[in-house]
Every structure is written in C-alpha cells, then in structure tokens.
C-alpha cells in the first residue's frame, strides 16, 4: 500500500532538517508512544499503542535511516514492527522543499501490513494513517515553533 502526503511547516528548511535528523525529537511526537530507545546509527526502537477499529494493542517497532542526503534535503527511512498478531514494514521517502515562508514536507510511504491489521479495508487504514500523520506533524510544528521562540 502506498500512502503519501504534503505538509507546510512555518519554519526554515534547515531548522526542519535539523529537527527531523534527531530521532529522539521526532519519536516523541509519535502518537501512542509508550517507550523508546535510540541506538547507534539513529536506529530507534519503540513501543507504540495502536487502536484501529476493533484492533487494539501495542506494537514493537523500529526505524533506521537507509539514506540521508542533506544537500538535497532528502532521506529514506526503513520502518518495521509487529504486535496484536500483525506486522508491518515500510520504506518512507522524505523531501523538504524550501518555500518563501516556510518548508514543504513531502513524504511517500510504501507500506506492507500483514495479519489482521492488513485485512482491514484500505480506507480504514488510510483514515488511521492520516490521523497519525496529522498528529505527528502537529506535534512537530509545535516543537519547531517552540524551539524557534
């Protein structure tokens, strides 16, 4: 399944890049986060609570940076996790475009979801992903604003 989205952040591209390059900052914005640890090479492992329809429980997930290109402001992340009888893995491409008054954050995720979670209809999953992403970016926006103040 492919998911994609765009978001405009009222911060400078460099600030956004610095923020998202710090896994410990981004991870704290993940909704439902219960615990996490950051390891060597920006690898993050985390325990996250999920609730999609009748499926509720915690996921053990990890992310690692596959590619990071500061010059072009692009990055590729690999995510994987399992829980509540289901599993997922994803490759996420990120790109930051500089705008006159901020930064455009573009993301594209190629996600494989397995198990009961994967059997949910795509619109249901999309709705959940959308909600999570909105919450994540709201948090990032908030943190960026606070840090610039």
């Amino acid at each position: 399944m492919k998911f994609e989205g765009k978001m405009v952040l009222n911060s400078r591209r460099e600030d956004v890049w610095n923020f998202i390059s710090e896994p410990s900052k981004v991870i704290e914005c993940v909704p439902g986060l219960e615990e996490y640890s950051v390891e060597e090479g920006k690898r993050v492992t985390a325990k996250v609570k999920v609730s999609i329809g009748f499926i509720k429980g915690t996921f053990r997930a990890s992310s690692s940076v596959v590619k990071e290109d500061h010059q072009n402001y692009t990055a590729k992340l690999k995510l994987s996790g399992s829980g509540v009888g289901s599993g997922f893995d994803a490759l996420v491409d990120l790109k930051l475009n500089e705008l006159e008054y901020g930064t455009e954050f573009i993301w594209l995720a190629d996600v494989n979801v397995s198990g009961p979670l994967g059997s949910l209809a795509k619109p249901m999953l999309e709705g959940y992903v959308r909600k999570i992403v909105d919450q994540l970016f709201d948090c990032i926006k908030r943190k960026l604003t606070n840090s610039t103040i």
């Binding site: 289901s86 494989n112 397995s114 059997s119």
Partner: peptide, 11 residues
C-alpha cells in the same frame, strides 16, 4: 493468510 503468510483471522 495474506500474501506474506500472516494469518489474518487468528481469533
């Protein structure tokens, strides 16, 4: 099973 061998109805 889904295409990755996961059971989608284990309940």
């Amino acid at each position: 099973f889904d295409e990755r061998g996961w059971v989608v109805n284990p309940n």
